[in-house]
Design a protein around this nucleic acid. Structure first.
Lengths: 192, 192
DNA sequence: GGCTGATAGTTAGGTAGCTAACCATAATTG
DNA sequence: CAATTATGGTTAGCTACCTAACTATCAGCC
């Protein structure tokens, strides 16, 4: 899963040099940005390697996890309404996964091809399909999840609990601000 | 640029609940991992929106930046050897960008199609092409870079200089450890 | 009931990533 | 020198993502 990040991050001195020509260049912001993406890329790649050894991609795995959560919610007892049953139609899955319905069609296609999910027509609305884990899919996800969680734990092992909290706090500062970025000033750059 | 991350990150209580069934699940590690990816995803998306408004993808933009850096190195004077000229063949570009040669072929194809780069045969090695920015490509990258840097600065604006240093330090701890992850124990999970 | 607008899932076409294979060329070995 | 190995760039086929368009169905309105 490459970002086409430059494999060797630019050294800080190079960024200082660049700042001479581009006053908009803030070296420490660049360093933070590139390190954030690079680290994300790297950890994502580690998980992806684990999954690909078992012939599944991150995307397909996420669909299985969403469906598994849905099936767990059904087994959890209590009041079940449409809102808290978890995603099960292609549109709901796409929304939860942050991709388009068209993309979800393809993902469910290959999962169905491999026998991990099945599609059923919705009895109440003829436009809709319902996607469910097959028994094989349940077995597969249950086998994969321990290793997946173990790998996540291993990736974060270098950080103490306090450091993790610090990291999450800083990330959330960025995350909350990100949607506001680039709304007006950057769009007018080309009117130089 | 979706990771197929779950759009709504699981709440900490859900992770605690999950830890009952999966002893391998470390809740704070999960939170840190998911927040890292989610934030990276979000900031990447902001830059991507800026670029797509100008009809270019992150990948193609990175190729242009690599080539621009190469051309700058040539103009920098001093001793020029093959090693410090910067990437210019498809293989060198692919290596620097962290993608395969096959992928780079496609990227250069569309950049050439749009008149931003040109391919020249290498005079010394008949297997090789040399990829260079066209004047149009130079103009384009120069127009784009100020806005690109401004956006990076804007994204990191919520953090102070100290916080940025802290973030980078924590990220580097993870980054250095990541290549060691998943080497032996996770592979044996399926022998449960 | 008929019409209009909205929704769901899929298809088509494009880009971007991969692997494997291919052909041409260069380098190495005996 | 001939054979073998290595390298470079591209192609083919696959998956994953997008947008736009399509068909079928549903919902709302008059």
């Amino acid at each position: 899963m490459p970002f086409l990040l430059l494999k060797d991050l630019p050294r800080y001195e190079c960024l200082l040099e660049g700042a001479k020509e581009f006053p908009e260049l803030d070296p420490s912001a660049c360093v933070a940005y590139l390190n954030l993406l690079r680290t994300g890329d790297e950890v994502y790649g580690v998980i992806e390697r684990y999954l690909s050894e078992h012939h599944i991609s991150q995307g397909r795995f996420s669909v299985l996890m969403l469906l598994w959560r849905t099936s767990q919610m059904r087994c959890g007892g209590g009041e079940q309404t449409a809102e808290n049953q978890g995603p099960r139609t292609p549109a709901e899955l796409a929304d939860a996964a942050g991709v388009t319905r068209a993309t979800m069609t393809g993902l469910v296609d290959t999962l169905e091809r491999d026998g991990l999910v099945r599609r059923e027509p919705d009895p109440n609305d003829r436009r809709m399909m319902s996607v469910e884990l097959t028994p094989e899919g349940v077995t597969f996800i249950k086998q994969m999840l321990p290793g997946h969680f173990r790998l996540m734990a291993e990736l974060m092992e270098p950080l103490t609990e306090d450091e993790r909290k610090t990291l999450v706090g800083l990330l959330n500062k960025i995350l909350r601000h990100a949607p506001n970025c680039g709304q007006t000033p950057a769009s007018s750059t080309l009117s130089n």
